[in-house]
């Protein structure tokens, strides 16, 4: 639109209305940062940066260190990314490059639906279906066969780091798949044809043309998924076991920043509440940085991956 608004008589307050609606979004972001920071200030003032490294979280003694929660967050989300990354990119390759045309739309829609299922439902499923399987089958097997490694040490009680990571894997899988698929679709078909015409096999076209030309976008999708895994609250809370200790084994119960907030929020006051806000601030800053990077990467590759982004950032 070449015409600036407000150049016609009688437009009244309409332009101001839309402009202030736009400005409100800015205000909202600033407000969230400010309010979480303000809530976190007493704890930040009391503990300083040591908050991040202290391992004791004791509401009775009113001493709070976030190391277990932060470590738990990092381990579960990275493990989830390690599981969902290959699976999601593989699925995206299938949907974008391999599936017959008639299957592509319905199959992509199924993946979209996977993203639509509320995370609380994944938590419920994780708690009542996955956790028992973990306890009696997978976790027990790991404990029996790999238990000599500290990271697979038992007892396998069903809930814990690994179970939380598997649930998170399901939560972030559609994000990775949908965005990777869109950036792969954006690779011009002339390039694929050019490579086929040289005598390449299907996989050679995928690995030498499609993936290199969409790698920035795929990286963005992975980052976005990581951000989502870090911020996910309910699904994790239900299956991580909620233990305030540095996790030493994949089978051990642990805590993430988000699960700690959900668990303790209702009974927290004063410094305890402020410490939870500080935990929230750490979470907010990490996810903001990761998401800003991810959005930048994805938009650099493909302007109109916007649709998938809007649907999958949370």
């Amino acid at each position: 639109m070449a015409c600036p608004s407000g150049d016609k008589v009688g437009e009244g307050f309409f332009p101001y209305l839309t402009a202030s609606a736009a400005a409100l979004l800015l205000l909202l972001v600033a407000g969230i940062l400010l309010i979480v920071f303000r809530g976190a200030w007493p704890a930040l003032h009391t503990f300083g940066l040591a908050f991040l490294f202290e391992t004791v979280w004791n509401p009775v003694a009113d001493v709070y260190g976030a190391a277990p929660a932060i470590l738990g967050t990092i381990i579960t989300s990275l493990l989830a990314l390690a599981l969902a990354g290959p699976l999601g990119v593989g699925t995206a390759i299938f949907l974008s490059e391999l599936a017959p045309l008639w299957l592509r739309k319905p199959a992509s829609f199924v993946v979209e639906l996977l993203a639509a299922v509320p995370s609380i439902v994944y938590g419920l499923w994780g708690l009542f279906v996955l956790a028992p399987i973990m306890r009696t089958v997978l976790g027990a097997w790991l404990e029996r066969n790999l238990g000599f490694l500290p990271m697979f040490q038992g007892p396998s009680i069903g809930v814990g780091v690994l179970t939380a990571s598997v649930v998170l894997t399901i939560v972030i899988l559609p994000t990775i798949t949908a965005i990777s698929r869109e950036v792969m679709r954006a690779v011009p078909s002339e390039l694929r044809e050019g490579m086929y015409a040289l005598g390449a096999t299907r996989w050679e076209v995928i690995s030498r043309i499609v993936l290199p030309n969409s790698k920035t976008g795929i990286l963005g999708a992975l980052l976005l998924a990581l951000g989502r895994a870090i911020g996910e609250a309910m699904a994790v809370t239900m299956v991580i076991g909620n233990a305030n200790a540095i996790p030493t084994s994949f089978l051990a119960p642990a805590q993430t920043a988000a699960s700690q907030i959900v668990n303790e929020f209702p009974e927290a006051f004063d410094l305890h509440l402020s410490s939870l806000f500080l935990l929230g601030l750490v979470l907010l800053v990490i996810t903001l940085v990761i998401n800003a990077g991810a959005v930048w990467l994805v938009y650099r590759t493909k302007q109109n991956a916007g649709g998938a982004l809007i649907r999958h950032e949370r």
């Binding site: 011009p188 002339e190 390039l191 044809e193 050019g194 086929y196 015409a197 040289l198 005598g199 030309n213």
Partner: peptide, 14 residues
């Protein structure tokens, strides 16, 4: 396809 090369309407260098 190795024996039969193809040049496209729009140049498509990788």
């Amino acid at each position: 396809r190795r024996r039969v090369g193809m040049i496209f309407q729009k140049p498509n260098p990788f």
